[in-house]
Write a protein that binds this DNA or RNA. Structure first.
Lengths: 247, 247
DNA sequence: AACGACCGTTGCTTGATAAGCAACACAGCA
DNA sequence: TGCTGTGTTGCTTATCAAGCAACGGTCGTT
């Protein structure tokens, strides 16, 4: 492993969180400030970072350009965008797109609904695995060894009254999801938020992602939410077909 | 400069363009394949890259997570604020920032000019689509289906003598805007107020927002207003670059 | 005004390591 | 079966990354 590159990657991750000074970065990495300065100077030369007026380092235009280019190149997100925008317009609810990345499910796109309560979900960050509908929709369709590896890392803390409290119960829920073709989150993370989710399946049945519709319990009853399942199913099928997925 | 970090940055830039093999990367960098392999192994350990089934290197989940986080943290308003404050200070005129939200264009920031007449515009409220410069600046650059969907909802009531009175005329105006690179409102909502506006374009040419400069006809002639176009162009370009947009 | 603390920066030294070489394993092809 | 090309690893060593000391600048305090 190349040590200076390791340090530089940590620097980039820290700076992505928030702009920081040389001193704080030196403390975080536990290396000499002149070492950090040299690393930052090289990153700055490439435009990956830049300094603001307060001498704090933040991400630079070359990083943003790479980020844009990378995200624009994502097939699923690009293909799904018009479908999800339409679903959002027709339901006036928040729509999420998520994918499995390693042992986490991560939101990769989001269309806000016309609701006063703003959803906490952040694109790029992992979803709460024990409760999120998109996580269940995906895990219900992955091979058991993959599922079990992921389940080993989930902590069932019982955040709300409806939260799943054990791996065994979670597996039972996944079997229901597989049978029903959709997953739900009935106030398992926030008691006043619920959602329905469905997987996007490839030709061989592998889940390449999942889509969810989220609402507050005050704006929609659970029955009203599940009444949107045909729209959701149509959306995920359209995306699958466009990707060359299910027949 | 730290040489291994320089090489790693070039690797990331190459891999962002398209997934590539060890051999092609080694040729591009003109360094030994074992050197490239060590660099890639370190990047892989951080999740910045990963290998596909054909042993080509492509961007990994950690890179995407950083990319999402970076782009989500970018608030157009935040990025634009110092630029627009400066534009306002230099012109002493009212400066607006607006974005397309669904089928409306909405002001998201505003810097008041030194004029006795206070502009009616309110942050968060939709702009008058048939006349506002920022609306034309944005609609001139969106895909035609999106433009047409928005145009379907605009009512051309002919508020003043200079108001646009038909969809057909509006489309002709948008074509002019696209050609000229800027839009105008020549007293189309209030006979004594006019403005110039320009879009803020992303790397792929999509309008992420627009900026306008507004004045009363008594304080500035139209020629004096259009004389500010270079300042406005510089402001929108600066914002675009900061967002990682145009070259 | 002077002083001290702190941050950022640079020249220099040196021990650590990045870089490349040779050899190997493996896959694909003739 | 043999050859070619790609990816990989152990080893050596020349290069350089890392840290130290000292400096300059800024800010706050007295």
């Amino acid at each position: 492993m190349i040590k200076s590159l390791e340090k530089a990657m940590i620097l980039l991750q820290e700076i992505t969180k928030e702009p920081q000074s040389l001193r704080t970065l030196s403390e975080t990495l536990q290396v000499h400030k002149s070492t950090v300065l040299r690393l930052l100077q090289t990153l700055e030369e490439f435009g990956m970072v830049e300094r603001d007026e307060e001498l704090r380092y933040r991400l630079g235009s070359a990083f943003y350009a790479m980020a844009y280019q990378a995200l624009e190149g994502l097939d699923l997100r690009k293909v799904a965008a018009p479908v999800l925008r339409d679903l959002n317009a027709r339901t006036n609810l928040t729509v999420h797109l998520a994918v499995l990345q390693g042992d986490k499910v991560v939101y990769i796109d989001k269309y806000e609904g016309m609701q006063q309560v703003q959803m906490y979900s952040r694109i790029g960050l992992p979803v709460p695995m024990s409760s999120a509908g998109v996580a269940k929709a995906i895990l219900a369709h992955v091979p058991e060894p993959v599922r079990d590896a992921v389940l080993r890392r989930i902590e069932f803390n019982g955040v709300t009254e409806t939260s799943i409290r054990s791996v065994q119960r979670y597996v039972e829920v996944l079997e229901e999801v597989r049978r029903n073709g959709y997953a739900v989150d009935r106030g398992e993370l926030e008691p006043f938020i619920h959602c329905v989710a469905m997987p996007i399946l490839s030709m061989d049945g592998a889940p390449v992602g999942a889509v969810s519709i989220t609402a507050t319990t005050s704006s929609h009853t659970f029955e009203q939410l599940t009444a949107l399942l045909p729209d959701l199913a149509q959306a995920t099928r359209t995306i699958s077909r466009t990707l060359g997925g299910e027949a």
